[in-house]
Design a protein around this nucleic acid. Structure first.
Length: 563
RNA sequence: UGGGGAGUAGUGUAACGGUAGCACGACAGACUCUGGAUCUGUCUGUCUAGGUUCGAAUCCUAGCUCCCCAGCCA
């Protein structure tokens, strides 16, 4: 599937205007700059599609750059997962793989330049003191007593910080800007802090680590980034981004642009909260099929094509927004609809015995995998016998008016097969529960409508009791039961949807899916799209994840009917 | 109450002084051996109040609401 160019948006308009003005003759260069401190989620997918999509459509390139300036929270596990996820999403950084850590030496030299220019100083204040002297939103801060150290002293101290002469937290390097600036990020921001932590890339080579603001713009400059696209919360940092670049004055001058990050209903996008769900075992891991992580969506069975389609549909703008989960679900259905074979699987079996079907007869019914266009995917043979399973909720003893399924004395079509009529109901004597149905079949109706012209209202799915295979089916639903779990004062975990996972113990599928391989996708007719789980499924013992249910207009009717 | 941003149908996003469009959604109908899919139709909108203009979502003024910023996180 080759995607069409993504829809227009304000960033592309800026690029068009730049190009029209003769800028960026060497080409458009963007970057996707994750910190390897967690797994990528669908919000990152928005950024990836934006940055890599622009590079693709404008004939430029997009760098994958790890923003690895905080070794305490970062790891190779995250780094590897990010690379895997970007590739899986369908994007290729080619040779353009970078790490902020690769610029530490250059950054250090530039920091020395700022010191020499009187634009940075070593500060001995404690974190608390720095906070206290920073002022507040409405009150200016006060200068650090160390702000006027000589260039020589600063240079010497900074060198000794690097050499490890001071304990963590004892000193920082700060930019000398303006403690009275209305924009707090300009109040002598910290550029470097001491941190004795092993870095996943530079090991113990450094105990001095640059802050994001200092590292990011310079990294962009080094890489020749033309459009450094980030989310709205960094907008307030842009003056600092520009200030550092002005001081360093590198040959290439990148520019920062901000867009609104993705929010979606019934889920969370906060890395911190996602980590908490994983650590506290509310989910099985980063790749739990309920997680909004790319690893989770992948294991759920969603294809990258669907995510790219979704990202094109949601657009890019500067206003805060929350996208309906429905939009993702629709993108998933649309992606899968025409490419996935249809098969039959009964989730909660109810036994039906056909009283007039010849004992011991088994018919092999040839059914197309894609009924809307039978030649497209071929056929398979499905065994039919006198003992079947149908879905429990396809039978109602006392049906409401618009119920088109099976009930006593009524008929239904078995998908791709005979019309049957319910002739009896067997109940558990003690509980009153319906445990079996008796029925008759109409031998004339296997491929045709009833000869006498009577109308059959509904069609239900079925399997032969003796020939079907047991499968485990895992019904996934939204992770949270409220649209915005992160809002409000209550712990977001109190909004976890208790029925976000339902495991069906007795599901039965038609014989043909018994040998499904991990990753195989099917539509179980009238239920939804499913994938054989990559981790837990194996041929002969399939385990299916529900990717997304089918639209179900009966569910709405039933609900509206006050059920 | 300092500074920086943002307000277009229920949701998301176009329109860049000239008919407010698209997608999701909802509703209605057609079709249907998936209550699926498909097709058709309908629905709801420019934050408010002024102003400029032949004409304003767009320009101006005032106001309202929401978001972001006081990490040695990114």
């Amino acid at each position: 599937m080759t995607d069409a160019p993504s829809p227009n948006n304000f960033i592309r308009q800026i690029i068009d205007a730049d190009l029209a003005a003769g800028k960026h003759a060497a080409g458009i260069v963007t970057r996707f700059p994750p910190e390897p401190n967690g797994y990528l989620h669908i919000g990152h997918a928005k950024s990836i599609c934006l940055n890599f999509g622009i590079a693709r459509d404008y004939g430029g390139h997009c760098n994958l750059r790890f923003d690895d300036t905080n070794p305490e929270k970062e790891s190779v596990e995250y780094l590897d997962s990010i690379k895997e996820d970007v590739r899986w999403l369908g994007f290729d950084w080619g040779t353009h793989l970078y790490h902020a850590a690769d610029y530490f030496e250059q950054l250090y030299e530039w920091a020395c330049k700022l010191i020499r220019d009187g634009k940075a100083f070593v500060c001995d204040l404690t974190p608390d003191e720095i906070r206290e002297t920073r002022g507040t939103l409405t009150k200016p801060g006060t200068d650090s007593p160390y702000r006027h150290r000589s260039v020589e002293e600063n240079l010497d101290l900074f060198r000794r910080m690097r050499a490890g002469e001071f304990p963590d937290g004892a000193k920082v390097l700060r930019a000398k800007i303006d403690m009275a600036a209305a924009n707090l990020s300009l109040r002598d921001p910290v550029m470097y802090r001491l941190r004795r932590a092993t870095h996943h890339r530079t090991g113990d080579q450094w105990c001095l680590y640059p802050m994001y603001d200092w590292a990011h713009g310079q990294s962009d400059a080094l890489e020749g980034i033309t459009h450094s696209i980030c989310t709205l919360e960094f907008e307030i940092h842009r003056p600092l981004y520009d200030w550092y670049l002005e001081q360093v004055a590198p040959p290439h001058r990148p520019r920062q642009f901000e867009f609104a990050r993705l929010n979606m209903t019934y889920t969370i996008m906060s890395k911190r909260m996602l980590l908490e769900l994983v650590q506290d075992r509310h989910v099985s891991g980063w790749d739990d099929p309920r997680m909004p992580t790319l690893a989770g969506l992948r294991r759920r069975g969603i294809r990258p094509e669907a995510i790219r389609l979704f990202c094109d549909r949601i657009g890019v703008a500067r206003a805060d927004s929350t996208v309906d989960m429905e939009l993702l679900e629709n993108s998933v259905r649309e992606d899968l609809n025409t490419i996935v074979p249809r098969v039959l699987c009964v989730h909660r079996p109810l036994r039906v015995v056909l009283e007039n079907y010849p004992t011991d007869l088994v018919e092999e019914i040839e059914l197309p995998y894609f009924p809307d266009d039978p030649p497209k995917m071929g056929t398979r043979k499905v065994p039919f016998s006198g003992a079947l399973f149908i879905e429990q909720d396809d039978f109602l003893e006392n049906p409401p008016k618009k119920f088109f399924r099976l009930s006593p004395g009524k008929e239904v079509r078995l998908r791709g097969c005979y019309v049957i009529k319910c002739t009896g109901v067997v109940k558990d004597e003690r509980t009153g529960e319906v445990v079996e149905l008796r029925a008759t079949y109409d031998p004339e109706t296997r491929t045709d409508a009833p000869k006498d012209g009577r109308k059959i209202g509904g069609t239900i799915h079925w399997v032969s009791a003796a020939h079907s295979v047991p499968v485990q089916v895992r019904l996934y639903d939204r992770l949270f039961s409220v649209p915005n779990p992160a809002a409000g004062e209550a712990d977001f975990k109190t909004h976890l949807n208790p029925s976000s996972l339902e495991v069906l113990p007795d599901a039965r599928a038609e014989r043909s899916v018994g040998e499904a391989k991990p990753g195989d996708r099917f539509q179980f007719e009238r239920r939804g799209f499913y994938v054989a789980d990559m981790k837990d499924s194996r041929p002969g013992a399939p385990v299916f994840n529900r990717i997304v249910s089918l639209r179900d207009s009966w569910a709405k009717v039933a609900k509206a009917g006050g059920a």
